[in-house]
Amino acid sequence: MDAQAPVLELKNLETHFETRDGTVRAVDGVSYSVGAGETLAVVGESGCGKSVLSLSILRLIPNPPGKIVGGSVMFGGEDLTQVSEERIRVIRGNKISMIFQEPMTSLNPMMTIGKQISEPLTQHMGLSKKQATNRAQEMLDLVQIPDSKKWLGGYPHEMSGGMRQRVMIAIALACDPKVLIADEPTTALDVTIQAQILLLIRNLQKKMGTAVIMVTHDLGVVAEVADRVVVMYAGRKVEEANVKDLFANPQHPYTIGLMTAIPRLDKITNGDDLNERLTEIPGVVLPLYDLPVGCAFADRCSFTTDKCRTDKPVFEEKSPSHWAACWQEMSS
């Protein structure tokens, strides 16, 4: 997909949480890379470790109890897991930015919108207050907030959820970052607003050449925006492929499960299948402090064999540029 060198590369990243029940391996050796202008989607159920993974990139995991215990995050020739606190601060919000799931609570209710957008500008780009305010207004225009001058002095509680998420995007993109991590950016929004926000991110990405890591549980969002997809289960990567390959030919039973769990309007309106029930993936994600020796998905999988229970499946290339961690061969 991308011939160029990756902007951001994760190698065997491991983030653990120490709890009373034991060590929770929230991220258990995940690797991926993303190139300039590319959109990588990270997909998985709640609790599969995808948010922890993205927070780990900028070391935003609360420590204690969380800790990055292994692996590396390579960015611009530096390993972000090893650099000093001062150095990571220069990268946060400047070279790598993040948008969070909850636009309603992610902004500071006591600070004007203009000030919140200017903050990283004065911090990282050394702009004066006036310059930063001008740039903040430009950013509001860029994320299509009407009446931007008026909103500079406005407060988050005066805005709708969609507008707040636009402001979050404006903050994230203010310093023209190389990588934008969007952690479920549309989950808390109405469907119509979701589409607007996704389109906005994509347009800005094209304009600025930003690499985007889109973390989501929504395969609809994946199909909409992603170039490449990483599917996560129980803290591990179980499948990685181009978005078209993945939807046409999923190689991991978990991915297949996710896809069949989506309600499809075309099937329902077909008439014959009116009574067909949605398929679910039986069971729940195992507690991450108590994973089995074999495949973590074995208990919920309909293809399970004895080997699945005793040996961890190898993450291997099943077809060109399509990797999966499963002992079984899935036919398309």
């Binding site: 935003l60 601060r89 220069v90 990268i91 400047n94 609570t105 992610s106 600070m111 911090q123």
Partner: peptide, 20 residues
């Protein structure tokens, strides 16, 4: 969440605690 946002902006700890 807003404290995480402020930290993710690359602000110093002092600014995160005192201003936000």
């Amino acid at each position: 969440d807003m404290i995480r946002t402020a930290t993710a902006k690359g602000l110093s700890r002092w600014r995160v605690y005192m201003v936000h």
